[in-house]
Design a protein around this nucleic acid. Structure first.
Lengths: 333, 333
DNA sequence: CAATTGTTGTTAATCGATTTACATTTACAT
DNA sequence: ATGTAAATGTAAATCGATTAACAACAATTG
């Protein structure tokens, strides 16, 4: 690895001139510029980004901390992040904690040690709270996506899970379904609680009693939802509608229902949540009616908010709340 | 952001002492150590990673360049990368080119500007060649995964696609199937060519004629494989076995076969490739017999090879070839 | 008691870039 | 010929850490 000084020596000029050439700045005679460029060329010289970032006090880099990377669910979110970053001239670095809180902390610290201009962290897990507060205390620009940090002056991009769940439930109720079952997520996650609350509130507002069998405690994955729904059906309970807190869970429930001879949506209506439906799903399952999360837009907004905050560090923190959209397909009219 | 000098001033000591405390080195009196630690604590001081990396001439960081991040296919590969990196004390940064060659180049350059100790690049695309050569010319340690760069002294982790395809085809032939159709991938990708060659070679070795209808040109995704298989069946061709170059393609083909009333494996045997089967697949499709790629192990090997190369820059480049394994499930005995 | 060893501390060089301040040269108008 | 402005160049400070070299002093040893 050669340095700017070596280039300067070989070209018989000062470092300053090389720097000017590198950054396309004036103040270099044509012949010197040419000579310097040719030395750079033949040396395969690349300026050191660390040194540059150190003196410029900026990295043009955003660090993104995710719980998982290889999940179709994050596809749109990451696309939004990347498109916006590209447009605004930032590089994006990803890291994956694989849901280990200590690894997440490690990468947050890593990014916060001057290696990025700001951090975007995804996390709906309640155990993230401490970690998020640690970022904030370092006073590095950051945006929390799907995170919820009360009493804390921090930028947040959120989804209105409560209203989404409320509207999904309301939709079912207004269609005449009253025997509705809700499949919840893991109760360690904020989103699960918020969606459950939305369901409960809607039921109460329409004075529909919530019984012991109205709520299936599961997680947002296929397997457990399948098992719980199966158990319910085998116990002889016959709901006429199901609001699942996540599409994956909806598919699990649907599988149980199909196995038990239910026809969808004739015997039971289904609404999911997320709009996380791989293209291939439609092959075998009925196309799912669901509450869409505008993940792409949320990704874009996160970057915009962060860059705002980088360029204007003294400004107050912002919170942007996104709404879900009911996408009517075939599992519920 | 405070600096080491500020800490030194506040604690009335020299920078050296602060540095020693930060790095847990001896040569600091107990009372000074305590004082410095308390100043660090109350200042929320974090040492600057760029400055440290600049003077230490190492970053303890590996940069990974992928075509896509949010794909189940890469799950195991990335797990392998991360586990190995964790064990060896390296941080891993990911970036996604989303299959844009210029963005890929941008991030490779970014990583190569001293920001990482080495680069791992995934790419089976033929258009990556130029890009890979540019990394090599920068003489920064790197490993290519699934890439194929001839006449170039560079570390590579590869899969024996030829032999895998050969063995899959051979397996079908030895079971008595002779009317075998192969679903290919995009011909711009090395893997597609290698797997096709393996198929062809096996057919030739067993003296089975390859007709016009023996090869379905598609990509490794569900849709096109579905369409091509459908077209074949509608033309009245009745193969007795199918070797798909990828599991996704296999599922597309299976879908067409099921729709046309074929029973699997009674009427037709199927072997896929990759073992990229999301858990949820088994719900509706028959469990797929396939050639497994040891992606987790390949991920680990990439990191090991890279770290080797970082610690011993002068050594010759290595190539490690991994073999596939036939996983017998229900679509082919 | 002198010599040696060990501990604790400081100063200054270093990593590789950018940038300010200033020096030199050239061109042009007066 | 003189003064001024523009263009081109250099030297040195700076970013924020680590570390080699060395100084000062206390403790140990013969």
């Amino acid at each position: 690895m050669s340095t700017i000084s070596e280039i300067a020596n070989k070209a018989n000029v000062s470092r300053t001139l090389v720097s000017r050439v590198l950054n396309n700045k004036p103040g270099v005679s044509p012949e010197n510029r040419k000579k310097i460029l040719s030395v750079i060329e033949e040396t395969n010289y690349v300026p050191n980004g660390l040194a540059r970032a150190l003196v410029m006090q900026k990295t043009q880099t955003i660090g993104v901390v995710m719980d998982e990377l290889c999940t179709s669910f994050f596809f749109d979110l990451i696309s939004g992040l990347q498109d916006a970053a590209e447009e605004m001239g930032y590089n994006i670095l990803f890291c994956s904690s694989r849901s280990h809180i200590d690894i997440k902390q490690k990468y947050v610290d890593y990014f916060a040690q001057g290696r990025t201009d700001g951090i975007i962290a995804y996390g709906s897990n309640l155990t993230d709270q401490q970690l998020f507060r640690s970022i904030v205390s370092k006073s590095i620009p950051c945006v929390l996506v799907e995170g919820n940090l009360s009493n804390c002056n921090v930028n947040m991009v959120q989804l209105d899970n409560f209203k989404g769940a409320y509207n999904a439930t309301k939709h079912l109720i207004e269609l005449g379904y009253h025997n509705i079952v809700h499949v919840t997520g893991d109760m360690n996650y904020n989103v699960s609680l918020e969606r459950l609350n939305g369901f409960v509130q809607a039921m109460q507002d329409f004075r529909i009693p919530i019984g012991q069998n109205s709520i299936l405690y599961a997680d947002y994955y296929e397997k457990l939802a399948y098992q719980q729904m199966r158990k319910l059906l085998e116990a002889g309970i016959k709901p006429d509608a199901c609001f699942a807190g996540a599409d994956k869970a909806a598919f699990g429930a649907i599988r149980a229902l199909l196995e038990m001879g239910y026809s969808i949506p004739k015997d039971i209506a289904i609404i999911g949540f997320d709009d996380d439906v791989p293209e291939s799903r439609d092959i075998v399952f009925p196309p799912l009616t669901t509450m869409r999360q505008p993940l792409y837009e949320m990704g874009r907004a996160s970057v915009q908010m962060l860059v705002d905050s980088i360029k204007n560090p003294s400004q107050n923190s912002q919170i942007k709340m996104f709404q879900t959209e009911l996408i009517i397909r075939k599992t519920c009219p």
